[in-house]
Design a protein around this nucleic acid. Sequence first.
DNA 1: CGCGGTGTTGAAGGCATTCAATTGTTGTGG
DNA 2: CCACAACAATTGAATGCCTTCAACACCGCG
Lengths: 251, 251
Amino acid sequence: MADTANTALIPTQCAQCAVRSRAICGALNEDEIVSLNQIAHKRSYEAGEVIMSDEEPHQFYANILSGVIKLTKGLSDGRQQIVGLRFAPDFLGRAFGPQIPFFAEAATDVEICMFPRDGFEKILKKYPELEHRLFERTLDELDAARDWMLLLGRKTAREKVASFLLTLAERAQDVGCHHYDFDADKKVSFELPLTRADMADFLGLTIETVSRQITHLKTSSIIRLVDNRLFVVEDLEGLDVAAGNERLNFD
Amino acid sequence: MADTANTALIPTQCAQCAVRSRAICGALNEDEIVSLNQIAHKRSYEAGEVIMSDEEPHQFYANILSGVIKLTKGLSDGRQQIVGLRFAPDFLGRAFGPQIPFFAEAATDVEICMFPRDGFEKILKKYPELEHRLFERTLDELDAARDWMLLLGRKTAREKVASFLLTLAERAQDVGCHHYDFDADKKVSFELPLTRADMADFLGLTIETVSRQITHLKTSSIIRLVDNRLFVVEDLEGLDVAAGNERLNFD
DNA sequence: CGCGGTGTTGAAGGCATTCAATTGTTGTGG
DNA sequence: CCACAACAATTGAATGCCTTCAACACCGCG
């Protein structure tokens, strides 16, 4: 039976893990985490490396410890679409079916905590709470995917770019890493984890169009770029309007 | 009646249900189905009626018995995007969270088998297999949503329309209701369950563009229209090529 | 310094949209 | 049965947004 609830039982790797409470591991109690930790090991990837492919079953599931992973689908003539982005405490892998219908590729340098397939699936069967947690995450993913469908199908280039930046800004606010507050009034700032090409593939645009829209947002004093990757939001409300979320009513 | 001794336990409504085996109910054994049936009742909607709204929690979950339901999201200025289509044995409602971030609207006349929220959630807690089944469906939905993101972001109008028709054609083949085989060689045919306007909202296009692309597919002898809703696929391979899935390689 | 990778900017063209008009379909009442 | 209205779908012409093609700027690195 389960031992006395004792934090000392938690493996040091997990105790020191930056994402444990927010990752799916947060659903587990001490001995559950022990059994998961027993099969886990860390691995890192460099930007551009393929982590999982749609061509062969993935041999592991994983938590993302740091970095950003892009999920991509492509057409035979080379056109590509990013169908999902995974950040730090997110889970990687399709439960129950080892086959995933997309590529998972490191967008930045990435660290993951990986669990071999068989072992993880056993644990998944054993602890329903874990499956439940995965289910809820999947539902959130689906919501996000639907938001994205609205963006891809109905928004203009300007709105697409603004929406994406807004998402990143909100993320930065939530995580509390708007580390870059030059001014007294704290502007939100964040590091873009993607190249312009990736941004284009995410938004269903071309590189050039993305670049032009960023320029436009700059000249509108809605955002400012410290460098190509570091964005400062000067006018959050303006960005929201540019994203097409709020429309001023002058009727 | 092919079933064994216990069949008598199954409520008549369920025994006669056309979708039972394929719906989530298929995951349940006899007494489970009894308890679900106790809280269930049928209801029908006319085309155009809103079934669930994002403004208030939905008071029930449901199986679709017949008809097609469209899930829509919109921008404040009226632009709309269909983010999902639900057909006959599909499930409706977001598990665990009664709030859904979209509208569910009857695209055709619809019949559903509805379960009050509280009761269904209790049963869901009680029978893990039911939750598991819902989870797997959610994963499939997510896959479909990602396919659609690729379509919305990267395909041309021609490819979009062709892809959609191809999906419907495949559905018709699977279900085995390519009822409309004029000729000896069986051409796939199906009834379009949407107006041109809905099609446009699904594909991220305008009504006019959808119409033009259908016309083009007609003049290319890839499809034929018996009437505005009844499509016959004359050249399935041609449709596949038009959809951008297969590209002939002349390299 | 030259080079590749990444990002920006400019000009021309194309594809989908917008605006507008017509045709086809359905249902209702005279 | 037909006229008529209301809606759905098609077709045409013109505009516009995004793409395509091309050139250039920027940056780190050998």
